[in-house]
């Protein structure tokens, strides 16, 4: 969300973006569509995504049901729209949790160095040895498949990415002058970290936030697909794809394919926008470009 807001709010920037990087502009456009879908879902369809209609089971796309209906007679279009809310509802808090943990850790270890740095960074390295999906699986199956659990697990798993990004920026800044002059002025450690270092070290992390959100969407839908995340009939894309997979063989493709397309599109949008953001926010790339 932070990323998307940054992409939208200063329109002047967006204008510049479309000129400089058309791919990023396409990404922002895709994201905008999804945000509209999430915000104005009730206006975009007349169906309730969780209302079962026994008179219209497994209707193919077309007619009254744009994307068809599923085995419970729920409208797939309405469900895909509602799923957008779940996707954002997981990805944004997950990225926020990851930044909330990762950024302070990166600031502190980067600035202090020494053994704090060693210990924390080694810990993070250890975490990265396991594929994140396996870790997520293990933790969620132990803690129970609730929305909050999924968010926290994704956030914690992703924190090292932000910690590393911030840490490397801080390392480059630490030897530079303004940190020393802030110390000489008598700044406290927290103020030094959050007022002086953070704004200068956050560009990389901000730029990555959209890409990390795409990651969170992917992992959370995978969890749901494996039956470990949010449970049906909640209109979450992963759960819907899982449901749809059963009917694929019998030719009722629409139940699973539409949420799948939505997932791919959102991922694409986030990644494209993320790349554009890095270009905009990373001063080093900007100078070169």
């Amino acid at each position: 969300m932070i990323a998307t807001m940054l992409g939208f709010a200063p329109l002047a920037r967006a204008r510049g973006l479309s000129r400089r990087s058309p791919m990023a502009a396409i990404g922002v456009l895709i994201l905008a569509l999804f945000v509209i879908a999430a915000l104005f879902e009730p206006l975009l369809t007349q169906y309730d995504p969780v209302a079962a209609d026994t008179t219209a089971l497994m209707k193919p796309p077309g007619g009254a049901h744009l994307f068809g209906t599923d085995a419970n007679g729920m409208d797939v279009y309405a469900r895909v729209l509602r799923g957008t809310r779940y996707a954002f509802g997981i990805a944004i808090p997950a990225v926020l949790v990851a930044m909330l943990i990762g950024v302070p850790v990166g600031l502190l270890t980067g600035y202090l160095g020494g053994w704090t740095d060693e210990v924390l960074m080694r810990g993070f390295d250890a975490m990265r040895v396991f594929p994140s999906i396996i870790l997520a699986l293990a933790v969620v199956s132990a803690a129970g498949p609730s929305l909050v659990n999924v968010v926290i697990v994704l956030g914690v798993l992703d924190a090292p990415v932000f910690a590393r990004l911030v840490r490397s920026e801080v390392l480059a800044l630490r030897s530079g002058g303004f940190v020393e002059s802030a110390v000489a002025a008598g700044n406290t450690l927290p103020r030094l970290l959050f007022v002086h270092l953070m704004p200068n070290a956050l560009a990389g992390a901000m730029a990555q936030s959209a890409v990390r959100a795409a990651w969170a969407v992917r992992i959370s839908t995978t969890l749901a697909f494996l039956g470990l995340g949010i449970q049906p009939p909640t209109p979450e894309w992963g759960a819907m794809i899982r449901q749809g997979a059963e009917y694929m063989v019998t030719g009722q493709w629409w139940v699973g394919v539409f949420p799948g397309i939505a997932l791919i599109l959102l991922s694409l949008g986030l990644n494209l926008a993320g790349d554009g953001l890095s270009e905009l926010l990373d001063p080093r790339q900007r100078k070169a470009g």
């Binding site: 530079g176 002058g177 303004f178 020393e180 002059s181 802030a182 110390v183 000489a184 002025a185 008598g186 406290t188 450690l189 002086h196 704004p199 200068n200």
Partner: peptide, 25 residues
């Protein structure tokens, strides 16, 4: 540094390179 902080109002420094001595943000 925590203890020195109290002295920082009594001592100050103008650094050699003004471009890098000020927080750019």
């Amino acid at each position: 540094e925590r203890r020195l902080r109290r002295l920082r109002s009594a001592m100050s420094m103008v650094f050699q390179d003004p471009w890098s001595a000020l927080n750019p943000r």
